[in-house]
Design a protein around this nucleic acid. Sequence first.
DNA 1: AGAATAGTGTCTTTAAGACAATATACC
DNA 2: GGTATATTGTCTTAAAGACACTATTCT
Lengths: 313, 313
Amino acid sequence: MAAYDPRDFPAIAVTVDVVVLTLRQGRLRILLVERGGRPFQGAWALPGGFVRAGQESLDEAAARELAEETGLDATQLERVHLEQLGSYGDPGRDPRMPVVTVAYLAFAPDLPEARGGSDASAAAWIPVDGLRLGGGGRDGDPARGVAQDFARGFAVGDTPASVEPDAAGPRPPEQGPGHGIDGGDSVPRPDDAHAVPGSGALPLAFDHARIVADGLDRARAKLEYTPLATAFLGEEFTIVELRGVYEAIWGSPLHAGNFHRKVLSVPGFVESTGSTAARGGARGGPRARLYRAGDARLLHPALLRPDREDSVR
Amino acid sequence: MAAYDPRDFPAIAVTVDVVVLTLRQGRLRILLVERGGRPFQGAWALPGGFVRAGQESLDEAAARELAEETGLDATQLERVHLEQLGSYGDPGRDPRMPVVTVAYLAFAPDLPEARGGSDASAAAWIPVDGLRLGGGGRDGDPARGVAQDFARGFAVGDTPASVEPDAAGPRPPEQGPGHGIDGGDSVPRPDDAHAVPGSGALPLAFDHARIVADGLDRARAKLEYTPLATAFLGEEFTIVELRGVYEAIWGSPLHAGNFHRKVLSVPGFVESTGSTAARGGARGGPRARLYRAGDARLLHPALLRPDREDSVR
DNA sequence: AGAATAGTGTCTTTAAGACAATATACC
DNA sequence: GGTATATTGTCTTAAAGACACTATTCT
């Protein structure tokens, strides 16, 4: 920002894209829309759209796109956590012209069926473990060069959360533990053959695979330091449901007893409602106590992921 | 990104701005340039410039601006850590037209004097504790709504690092402990009266105060979870110098003995060079051993800030 | 010599992890 | 009744923090 006049410079189209995560049937799912037009016709993409220059902030644009695509009203939107994820502007990421997109990350409780915004031919909640993503992270080496990040935020909603490893019905392919390790570079060629959910691979349009991978990394990290897991649940929830959120997003089981005590010991994470769930466990057991989100914005001490030891070295 | 064609939409100017931090005389400093033209003529601003649409990635644009403004060559740039911080696009943040800026955060070792890029009338390393920033953070409430984040990365350089509280010479004003608590909203009016360093307040152009505040928040957080403090030092450094980085950025003294042991106990944080510093402490004491950055990308266990307890609730 | 400082040792407190035990509710 | 399950108790280990001590080097 120096002496130049902005009007002397070639403008760039600016969009927002939103990685909306939710928990459904104990599985982490992402909202995707099927592209009706070229390029990447028929491929799945993140919901998003163009920023209305000068009329709205980036945050507002993201909230607007989120509302349009999910059909949520303003009240429901309040319970959704929305934060900026990062911006992506590699030349050629859109074959038509230079486009910079500002990506957002949203945590939502189980929402009514996606309705496919006005401009998308279809929208669906796709299980993230059915996606093929390139390793995740902005960089092979987060050390030198430009690297990725963490974040914080908050909200609440309405969802049970029974962690069933897997059930039935046609659905996108699994992926071994490790969440995709190919690390291939993102931007696929436009107008490849594109699969539909349940049919095998599931390539995403543009560089959206990388954006989703970055969003998942961010989500996993934020569960450690923030109480944002509660944003995936209803206003009232049990500790077991909360654990289900962690297990679904981290992809590994947690020790029930220790998790329970830990959650209760972190100041401001949850507060008791005094009441208990209507029913006990599906196959027996006492009724769990109900809690709501506390007033903490950061967990202290944090709830760190198990293992990881030097996995990131 | 749905069915619309980007060409149908009003384009927006896209810039990159860089928050470059370094350590000089034991104080944390930021590279600022004095604006030669309007708006905000005479005010200080972040180094940055327009993204060359379609010709470079955002990361490349940031690296280019960084190099232009600091006069560093490609080799020196390799030792600088550079990561994306976030994007800012409030309507009216540039009074001339809609401009979205993608902010970057850089950690650099002590560099030669700033030379004032081709397009800036002056450039200087300003102590950050002389800046008046609005509280920091993107939001009053990081919980609901759009919130801020953390990150990771890495690099090295060349600097001693004797922590002297303050020395001499005309310079921008101090500020009591607490790093600025006014919390006023960013975007100042264009063409106010603007102070020069050493003359009192020091308002920044555009919304750069908020960007700097976010950058400092990010920097403080990253020291906890990453070995990036080494990016402020030379290739070889002592544990005491490393502690100086933490103390300057966190703004509070750390326990020397415990810090020493902690650094050595985290795998991959530092590795011994076998040699020792040429001289002992300024006023006596044994010669400190020299270390270089290790291969860890994340500190595990982390080196958490003292206190903070529930300061963030 | 005197003083400051790098580095280490030790002890206490806190938090995490592994089990185990108890009581409650579903079938 | 049998069994799964929510919750709590106990014990071990890891890590942080406070403090003391030693040896080294500067003035």
